[in-house]
Simulated scan of single mutants.
Amino acid sequence: MSFDPTPGQAETLAPGLRRVLAPNPSPMTYRGTNTYILGRGAVAVIDPGPDDRAHFKAIFDALAPNERITHILVTHSHVDHSPLARPLSRATGAPVLAHGDSTAGRRADLAQLSGLGGGEGIDPGFAPDHRLADGETIIGADWQITALHTPGHMGNHMCFAWQGALFTGDHVMGWASSMVSPPDGDLAAFMASLDRLRARPEHILYPGHGAPVQDGPARIAALATHRRARRAQILEALARGPATPEALTRAIYTDAPPGLLGAALRNVLAHLVELTDEKLAAPLGEMTVTTPWQRI
């Protein structure tokens, strides 16, 4: 499916829902970050995006006369999603709502390990004005949205349910799978969040990057199947002998573009952490990104 909207140009996706694409394309962000404007009159902004003056202006240009921003919601605090939240809040007086800061929801045991690396794209200064609880409902003038804590891609990741649709941030996208990078990401949590979303009644997904997903349950099932296949590949490779995350990445991701091999390595590491938790594999020494793992 073609997806090539013009950055900065507001598009109506559904009654009461507009999208403004940020001008930050990359191998990790696809065409850029999707900023959503929810409601009419008194509106919410979901994922303001990077701290970019042109995008800041585009969000205000997308508003009709006499419209105002009353809520700013952030799915998670990566630099392509959250940095514009504070400038937008200062300009409008609207509070920033999210699950927590960039350390919220992280596994404490993994955060204490200095050799795992990680931290890619974290917005370290992010702090919401209001910490959203799982299941909390936010009510606007003509809209209502429910926050769902969906850790995995990042510990503070949330999805938002609205009128039969889900805003899924980076947890579920149609154009690619998500990176899970320990210690900020956790694969077991990612899979549990997929199961939770698949069991919900919403069908349409509005992701942080890429086009809307019309059959959300099918896409969620496909992502879960993909992750289980990668897990099986890693176990099969370890059955032939110990290997480092880098060696496993080279052996498994044979068709990945060079620009995505770094993200692939982080996903392999996430699988190894999960397999270690399940006592199916173990590092030969301290758990680091360069340590060989063996099958148990």
Rank of each mutant, 00 (worst) to 15 (best):
T33H: 05
T35C: 13
Y36K: 00
L38M: 05
L38C: 05
R40Y: 09
V45W: 01
V45Q: 01
I46S: 00
P48V: 02
P48C: 06
P48A: 11
P48D: 02
P50M: 07
P50W: 06
D51M: 08
D52E: 14
D52S: 12
F56R: 08
K57I: 15
I59L: 15
I59Y: 04
F60W: 11
D61C: 07
A62V: 06
A62D: 00
P65N: 06
E67F: 10
R68P: 02
R68I: 06
R68A: 12
R68N: 11
R68T: 14
I69R: 01
I69F: 05
T70M: 12
T70V: 12
H71W: 11
I72H: 01
H76A: 14
S77F: 06
S77K: 00
V79W: 03
P83T: 09
A85F: 03
A85R: 00
R86W: 10
R86I: 06
L88K: 02
L88V: 07
S89G: 09
S89Y: 04
A91Y: 10
T92H: 09
T92F: 11
T92E: 10
G93C: 13
G93W: 13
G93M: 13
G93L: 13
P95L: 09
V96Y: 08
L97T: 00
A98N: 03
A98S: 14
G100E: 08
A104G: 04
A104W: 13
G105I: 06
R106C: 11
R107P: 01
A108G: 10
D109W: 11
Q112E: 15
L113F: 06
L116S: 01
L116Q: 00
G119L: 08
